[in-house]
Design a protein around this nucleic acid. Structure first.
Lengths: 238, 238
DNA sequence: GAAGCTATTGGACTCTGATTCAATAGCTCC
DNA sequence: GGAGCTATTGAATCAGAGTCCAATAGCTTC
């Protein structure tokens, strides 16, 4: 295509290729994407791809990893906030950034979990998310199988909600989904705690269920800015 | 492989091939499975596969469809129960049948949503599920975008919970997950109704949140057997 | 147990698309 | 502006999906 051969720095080229990979694999499935297609889309020769990646598969996996990485950078946790608030802001940012990173999300949501390597990447990503969800629960919360399963199940609903938001033409808003998901997480964790005595629910959360969770959390941390609260970083919402 | 050639009725053979397909594609990904591999695993020649299916892809799609179909047969709704109870029994059966249909579940959970055709099958399946979830909500519930999004998001958590149960070595039980999910659905729908006035929540559900939902629903319909209640089929839980 | 029907086989072929590698040519530094 | 380094190319190769079909052999029926 581009008859002019341009010589780039290795890192730059690699990033460029991977970004194109994220975009391509978000739109078309594995079989539909050919090495030549990738090369053409990148304005680069077939051979170059093989110089950077061992093959189509490695390129694909690297693209998935890049997508995960891009989304992670976007949602760096505010370590100064209490865990519950970290989770909420993370969720808000996640939904706020959906259009901007639609490709990365589409790729990750569309990935085949049947593929071991790719599934492992996605699983690691989910696990990090689950840890954040459970960070708000001191005591045995994090280590109880039911608590973990509950957190992961809830993450499934966050993913589905993401799909909805990407697919919807604005007839559902990010704010609505955040509120619904927050409510549903609190209810799920309370239900889990009722079933498994080893799960300790922080006292603040206990009184939260039943509406206005988002507002309650927001209020709890804006009344009390993180900088002014010693050791606040690790405290759950009071 | 099997040197003995066995001649079967067309329908029987087709089913046999598809069942093998569900099993194969549940364990290995699309690329890992070759036509010859499929044939060998089925104890059948390459040529026969092409006699029954136009190619690898058609075989794959048909396998996915078969998986969906198998799971549907298992969870036939009890039309005599009120919608809420239908949903609950459906959920219970779904989890109860997980081991038995682990292959079909694994296949469906592992399928690449990036593949249009396959994604459509899965989407249709989810949609049927979503309709059942919303069936308990009279009025505008079913047609509100937020209500639908909420239902689909919750279905995402059911799928994730299914993954958990398949992966767990029995340290989480189906009953626990059903309880957690039920609680979380009610909370989510109530939250959605609070945000969107057009969503009407049946009065019975309103008082349900906060523990013991499963018990409440079970009690509500066992006190009052469906056969004895005229028109009961369409009534929500009182 | 012979005939007929058709499910089943397997090998030879084509074709698409992944992979390899020796040759080519930007870029930088002197 | 020439030398050297290495990013980049594209023709050659290879693997396996997809195709075709004449030969084979279960099952049924008489």
């Amino acid at each position: 295509m581009a008859s002019v051969r341009t010589r780039l720095d290795v890192d730059v080229r690699r990033e460029q290729l991977l970004d194109a990979g994220v975009e391509l694999f978000a739109r078309r499935s594995w079989e539909e994407v050919s090495i030549d297609g990738i090369a053409a889309a990148c304005g680069v020769s077939r051979g170059l791809l093989y110089h950077y990646f061992k093959g189509k598969r490695e390129f694909y996996v690297a693209s998935v990893e890049r997508a995960v990485q891009r989304l992670h950078e976007e949602i760096e946790p505010e370590l100064t906030l209490p865990p519950t608030a970290q989770l909420l802001t993370g969720l808000q940012r996640h939904f706020a950034g959906i259009e901007q990173h639609a490709d990365a999300h589409t790729l990750l949501l569309g990935v085949a979990a049947a593929d071991e390597e790719v599934a492992a990447i996605v699983a690691r990503d989910r696990e990090a998310f689950a840890q954040r969800v459970l960070a708000g629960m001191p005591g045995a919360g994090g280590s109880s199988p039911l608590a973990r399963a509950t957190a992961r199940a809830w993450i499934g609903s966050v993913e589905a909600a993401t799909r909805e938001l990407i697919a919807s033409d604005g007839d559902v808003t990010a704010e609505q989904l955040v509120a619904v998901l927050a409510e549903s997480l609190v209810a799920a964790l309370l239900a889990a705690a009722r079933l498994d005595a080893s799960i300790e629910v922080p006292p603040g959360i206990d009184g939260l269920a039943g509406g206005g969770i988002v507002e309650a959390i927001v209020a709890s941390w804006s009344d009390d800015p993180p900088g002014e609260r010693p050791g606040g970083a690790e405290q759950p919402v009071p």
